[in-house]
Design a protein around this nucleic acid. Structure first.
Ligand SMILES: [Mn+2]
Ligand SMILES: [Mn+2]
Ligand SMILES: [Zn+2]
Ligand SMILES: [Zn+2]
Lengths: 148, 148
DNA sequence: TTGTTATTGAGACTCATTCTCAATTAATAT
DNA sequence: ATATTAATTGAGAATGAGTCTCAATAACAA
């Protein structure tokens, strides 16, 4: 389970280093994304927050998401026609995604071998890799079967 | 070099199969993207076309780019705040990208080993991979040096 | 506390992309 | 070739995710 107190402390430190403050609004958004298990989009997040009775404006949600992205708490899963999809990566093992073109299902996977190979490829180019996004698109097992 | 005639034929076939027609406008856009060596965005493409004296509306450029994407002539490199960046992939060997966070340089690379490994990983999940996008972000050799 | 400065929120604004619909054009039938 | 039918185009309006403005407010340091 994710340690929210540590998260709060880490985020505060990030903000401090940039001359910024931990406000109530930022704290609310932070808490919400630390509770998110899956992928999410800004507006759903906003609505979820409002449903709990807390008041944070859309502008602040967007602003905070940008901060959380810069500080590495969340990462962008993909950008669709309808907006950006994020996921919380704080205290969560890195993984990549497969995306079913038919039903939209998302499969998360991790391969040590794949990570190592990417590092090797970066070295060959003199490139210092920091992060990466790999999305494999195609058909999940179920949809694959239904196609015949 | 890319065979534009074959390209035209292939695109026409795609359109026919969908009850659509190869118009002058679509032909102009197709020709332009087949001449593109690097990455491009819709509006630059539109302006390039206008500069050659040809008349194609923005709406048609966008519409045709969508068709070219669906038919596999172009692929989306990345979506930025400022819009979508495409590249022509017709008759061009697949590759992935490294992106320098500092200077914006883009390195294209290809690794047979990486492709094979991805296939293996897909099989393990019962997933039928069709396409993928891998973007590695970090620092290019030059920027890496300038950081110290 | 007090002073200083960052932050917030409502709504205006941006701008890439899509939509509308009357006029036009490609493909097909006669 | 000409008429028929349906797809396509373009100008500009519309959409909508995300950003910006700025007066009011809250965080923080002393
Ligand atoms: Mn994920
Ligand atoms: Mn490329
Ligand atoms: Zn599926
Ligand atoms: Zn660089």
């Amino acid at each position: 389970m994710i340690d929210k107190n540590k998260g709060k402390k880490d985020f505060t430190n990030f903000l401090r280093e940039h001359g910024q403050r931990l406000t109530n609004e930022r704290s609310v958004v932070l808490n919400r994304i630390l509770s998110c298990t899956g992928h999410f989009d800004p507006d759903s997040l906003y609505l979820q927050i409002r449903q709990t009775g807390l008041k944070v404006s859309r502008a602040s949600v967007y602003r905070t998401l940008n901060l959380l992205h810069k500080s590495g708490f969340i990462s962008i899963v993909r950008k669709t026609e309808k907006g950006t999809i994020y996921e919380c990566v704080y205290g969560i093992k890195h993984h990549d995604h497969m995306h079913c073109n038919e039903c939209g299902k998302v499969i998360e996977f991790y391969s040590e071998e794949l990570e190592k190979l990417q590092e090797k490829i970066c070295e060959k180019q003199g490139f210092k890799g920091q992060s990466h996004t790999l999305e494999i698109r195609g058909y999940c097992a179920k949809c694959k079967k239904n196609m015949k």
